[in-house]
Design a protein around this nucleic acid. Sequence first.
DNA 1: ACACGTCGGGG
DNA 2: GTGTACGACGTGT
Length: 897
Amino acid sequence: MKFQILDIDYFLNNNKPVLRIFGKQEDGTSVCGMYDKLEPYFYIRLGVSFDKALDEMEKMREIKNVEQAERFVPLGYQTSKTKLLKVTLWNPQEVPTVKSKLIELGIAKDIFEADILFKYRFMIDHGFYGMQWVEADGESTKTVKSKVKTYKINSIKPIEKQENAPISYMAFDIECVPSDPKRPLDARKDPIVMISLSFVPEYRNKKDIVLVAKPFTGEGTKGFANEKEMLEEFLNIIETYDPDVLTGYNINSFDFPYIVERLKQNKLNACIGRTDKEAFSREFGITNEFIVTGRVVVDPYQILKRDPWVKFHRYDLNTVAKQLLNEEKHAVEYGEMAGLWNGGKEGLSRLIEYCRRDADLSLKLVLNRGMLDKFFELSKISGLLLQDVFGGQTRRIEVMLLHEFRKRDFVMSAAPSRNDMSRRTGERKDNELKGATVLEPKKGLHAEGCVLVLDFKSLYPSIMRTFNVSPDSVLLDKELIEKVKSHQSPTGTHFVDGEIYQGIFPFVLTKLLDARGAIKKQMKTSAGDEKRILNAKQLALKDICNSFYGYTGYIRARLYMIDVANSITGYGRDNIEKTRKLIEENFDVEVVYGDTDSIFLKTKTTNLEEAQELGTKISKFITERLPGYLELEFEKIYRTFLILSKKRYAGWKFEKVGDKWNDEMEMRGIETVRRDWCMLVSDVMNEVLRIVLKEGDLQAAITCVKDILDKLRKGKIPMEKLTIIKGITQSLDAYKGTLPHIELAKKLAIRNPHDPPKVGDRLEFVIIKGNQMLSKRSEDPRYAEQNNIQIDSDYYINSQLFPPIERIFAAVGIDKSEIFGSGHQASLGDLLSGKKRTMKHDIEIEYKKLEGIEEFICKKCNKSYRRIPLSGVCECGGELLMSYHGSVGDKIILDKK
DNA sequence: ACACGTCGGGG
DNA sequence: GTGTACGACGTGT
């Protein structure tokens, strides 16, 4: 029998562990393999004599066997293996108690691998990675311990196979109505009124179903007498459809815990998994986790929120779906729900369709956007089970290293205890983790010549490879430093030379980076699904490679070594300084900026082709002169470059695709979108940056801002552009200070006593004119509009627009008084005497061709604008979308690092 | 510039 | 389940 591993756990049968390996066969059949031939074990370094230890340990009934073993210990370069004891127990659950007993009695001085989950012990010992294809031999068996086809396995081994087995997905979403409209939802009392389910592939020829907790008939809808019957059907569908992946938006912290509580209230078992074990939820901080044995729980909310490459302004389903799928939720406000539920059939239908859409959108997010592709690959590369790969980098690295350790006869350190961690924190006071070098920026606008950006390819991984930096290659012993051929890092730590012994990190990184290189090559000749998967794979490899450095300095790492981390950044600092010097000595360019692994060079040419050529030449020159694997790559050209300070800059980027130059505005660290800013600020900032960078017309930038201020003072900016949104997070009287949105909430509660704002509501407000304190001058935008209340233009000018806009203007040498100053206005010419006020960028390509590449298109009537009209919307009132190189969509803010 | 506190998504 | 756990952005000093 062959199958792909999805999940593993174990149960006890007469105090003996039996592993349950859940998987999928090629034809999509779910199977479970039961394996009982593994015993839990760990290693100790003796604190007493062997005989004494043996004596004591024979008295412990939990211990099955003790034998001598020789292994390399992980920290510091080892010239020989260390004598250890391998302790085998009967029951994995007794490991923690035995472990602490051995330490207490002084028998063990050190403990290794006593905190490796039993399922991972199994995987590592068998060489199984996540989503591994295996071949097992055994016989079919019947048991209550599994709900799918089960086999008792005699032997099991990994096999080579790339493609995934067919995976089934089910998304769901629940709606609840509070029994007391003034109170927040309470899962103990307030029932679930409907559950929508969405399937890929279809379930009984249906792509979705909505279960309703009251009698109802309708297409794709199933009514029930009450909540309990509806919940029973929910459990029943899960069992018959048998999904591999359960998904839904924010299910980990809302839907799942809520359902579990409702099942409990209705005296039903939470049998959602593929075993007799009930599903359960646990929380830490915000990251709730929901465990369903045998299946994989995927919460797109958590995945999106943790993605460092793509950031959203907000993370509610509507915003995310709009951006990623160009689809929206049905418009139903939370406050309406009770009314819809308790009202007539029409309202109920609306609520049902709202619910249906939510589940559909979640599933589309996961599937249409290939959200899991990278995680499948991360699981295969790291060795973590799919369910565990959504967490942090630490576990990915550690389980991967465990595989490597086993091959090399190494043992893994224990995860740090609370004590270890506070000791590490304390030690940092004297020996702090020093970061990278950020070259002092030459602030301002650089428009006279193209700016070249060059990057070191995988800087930290390359450093670790070049200088053999690894926790197991450090020379901790003074004597060893004299005996062994070694080198010293810029921060004074010694490492054994690579030709004597290659550390595990450089070894693993070499494997991973080589694999990534091969995949990127392969991508060039592939297309469609194949290319998509290859891309996911190379991204997964990149993620893992880039996390090694951070790992060595992470307080919770098993292989924490601050000297190793500091050596890496130390080499990095050396490298960028060396590079700067080499460039300045050999090329006629000015270093205007650089950060960690990048360097920005201002050239004397405005010709893109020439700039490109120079960039390539410099990268080759430098790479030839740097040691080992360090490689400086020519990354991109900024025709114009504006830098405000370290880490805050914008550039007009040109990139050659084929023989055409594509252009794009790029911003880093300059936020144009922030939660607490109204839309007007974002619009003005984008517009100002565009004018400065693309038109080089400072005058126009000033005029643009002045126009806005003028409109603002005359009350001509639409209310929605001035609206600020903030949420109510606690009961109104619990707030200590006065906050604008809370003051407004109080006002609204008086105006509208039957539907007051509640905890969890998000309030929109504008600041209006008046002589009270600011916080008391918040008002509902619609109310202000209807009652013709004037907004406080001074607030918007001084508190919202001024700070960010001033930073930009200061950098290009425009004094704030020129725009914001009231009364006496300095003449434009005076302010910048000697400096050229306006310049049209000189570009030696056909400018005409560029026109129209970037434009704004109305979503409704398709009318296109070269600039956003100041109203922010189309003449027809429709929303405007940006268009880049022919593709239309809101811009997602990408911010590397 | 730093330390400390709050909040997120869902209904 | 041989585990005990976030990170961005806000305000205040």
